[in-house]
């Protein structure tokens, strides 16, 4: 049996997390190759709609990364994210999709190592959960 290789999306805000990802890259930190980084202006640009759509289309896990609370370039953008994502997770649980497939975390521009750690752990967690059950769902 071949090992399950999850496909993961990581939405990273332009001002902190994307810079953090960049730093992880230029520091040549080892990272799993399963993660596709999507650069967005702010974590609040990641409407829950996009999280749902990703999962419905078969993405195995969605990471939303933003600036730490208090550091958002748009001041309160990440406050919005901090409220929306937990709701989206609950709604997924309600219909039988494991909410651990969605994760919210804060990564600053200086935290290349944290970026590495967050995505490594997330990839491991998703590997443990197995393929997204919605991938096979045909409505």
């Amino acid at each position: 049996m071949t090992e399950f290789n999850p496909t993961i999306l990581a939405f990273c805000c332009n001002w902190c997390s994307y810079a953090g990802a960049d730093l992880a890259g230029v520091s040549r930190l080892q990272m799993p190759p399963n993660v596709h980084v999507v650069r967005v202006m702010c974590s609040a640009s990641v409407k829950p709609e996009y999280i749902f759509k990703s999962l419905v289309q078969g993405i195995d896990g969605v990471l939303v990364l933003g600036c730490h609370i208090g550091d958002c370039h748009y001041l309160t953008g990440n406050h919005r994210t901090a409220k929306r994502v937990p709701i989206a997770q609950k709604l997924l649980d309600d219909v039988g999709v494991d909410s651990r497939r969605v994760k919210l975390d804060w990564v600053s521009a200086a935290e290349g190592e944290k970026f590495q750690q967050v995505i490594t752990e997330f990839v491991d967690e998703i590997k443990g959960l197995g393929p997204n059950p919605m991938r096979g769902v045909r409505l």
């Binding site: 829950p48 709609e49 749902f52 759509k53 419905v56 709701i87 989206a88 709604l91 219909v95 409505l139």
Partner: peptide
């Protein structure tokens, strides 16, 4: 209405995807 955006509810095809109901759920939450 976000549900009328074709990104979330394709113009063609019935039923709409699972996302239709999740998006609605989020908006009514």
């Amino acid at each position: 209405c976000v549900l009328e955006e074709h990104t979330f509810t394709p113009e063609l095809g019935i039923p709409p995807s699972f996302a239709f109901h999740l998006v609605r759920s989020m908006h009514m939450s």
